[in-house]
């Protein structure tokens, strides 16, 4: 009895017993074709899966010979996986360690994702980052262009004259034939201010942004010359409402939380460990940190 008791405490025996149990478990779970099993069954479903994979690349079904090749390849892979597992090749494997760490971190991230932030939290985050989230104002624009390049010094005088006429004609003045022809749009429908930036440049757009709508004014300078401008309509950006930016706020808030939670987790766990670090000698260190230089794109 004592001998048996001793035997039970032997790690190897424990391992074998545990292994046997696991084996039995997997046999039971998988109906006899699990990792330790010596039975490999190729089901019609699997064959279809292999064939459709082939067809996706080649845009035709595999021939019989090709299908046989696919199946042989699959069987080989299955055998290799089971044998490698049985031989313990998966132990002390950096890939598997990495995978475990990843799973661990996924648990935290899942926990974060499963506790969705409340409206109040989202609201708070949004307000904190309001400047980055706020939408642009919408403006419409009508403009008459005078080329300083062509008109020289008289451009400004002519612009003043034309402005008087435009003002008396009002916001709906016909401008098709006024000023100098160019590829610049004479009218921009109501749209984000960035549409003005796109066509006339950043500085010009800033000046348009500052204009009182409804009245002809100018001349406003752009890279191309002088412009008499009218903002027929303008819509201020709606006050930041969570409903409008919710997906973005959620994404950013969750990303921030995952980072902080993970950091907290490691800090908490670290308390349970004693970590001793011995740095390698100087020359070894240099060698180890020599970055691979190959980075060129091909």
């Amino acid at each position: 009895m004592r001998a048996v008791g001793k035997l039970v405490r032997e790690p190897l025996v424990q391992f074998l017993v545990l292994g046997g149990l696991l084996f039995a478990y997997f046999e039971w779970r998988s109906g006899g074709s699990g990792p330790g099993s010596t039975r490999i069954s190729i089901t019609p479903g699997l064959v279809e899966h292999l064939a459709s994979g082939f067809a996706k690349t080649w845009q035709r079904p595999p021939t019989d010979a090709e299908l046989k090749g696919l199946i042989d390849e699959h069987v080989r892979e299955e055998i290799a996986t089971r044998e490698a597992t049985a031989m313990g090749l998966d132990r002390d494997d950096t890939i598997i360690r990495r995978r475990l760490r990843q799973k661990m971190e996924f648990l935290v991230e899942d926990a974060v994702d499963q506790a969705p932030p409340s409206d109040a939290e989202l609201q708070q985050w949004m307000e904190k980052h309001a400047d980055a989230l706020r939408a642009e104002p919408q403006v419409a624009l009508r403009q008459v262009y005078l080329s300083t390049e062509r008109r020289g010094a008289s451009a400004r005088i002519e612009a003043e004259k034309l402005l008087t006429s435009l003002r008396s004609a009002g916001p709906d003045a016909r401008i098709d034939a006024l000023g100098d022809a160019s590829m610049l749009p004479r009218e921009l429908p109501l749209g984000p201010l960035s549409e003005v930036t796109r066509a006339f440049g950043t500085e010009f757009a800033a000046r348009i942004d500052a204009l009182e709508p409804g009245q002809w004014s100018g001349p406003v300078e752009s890279p191309y010359g002088l412009h008499l401008v009218l903002v027929p309509g303008r819509i201020e950006p709606a006050p930041l409402a969570l409903a409008d930016v919710r997906p973005l706020v959620e994404r950013e808030l969750l990303a921030e939380r995952r980072r902080t939670q993970l950091q907290a987790l490691y800090e908490r766990l670290l308390e349970r460990y004693t970590v001793t670090i011995e740095m390698p000698k100087e020359e070894v260190k240099t060698q180890a940190s020599a970055a691979p230089a190959e980075g060129g794109a091909r």
Partner: peptide
């Protein structure tokens, strides 16, 4: 020349000057 013509056109607008955009649907884009 075009400028001179367009200034002549200014007078014409004053004649058929339409009411302001308020209250009516304006098509800004041609």
């Amino acid at each position: 020349a075009a400028f001179a013509i367009s200034l002549c056109g200014v007078a014409a607008w004053a004649q058929d000057d339409a009411p302001g955009p308020s209250g009516k649907k304006v098509q800004y884009s041609p």
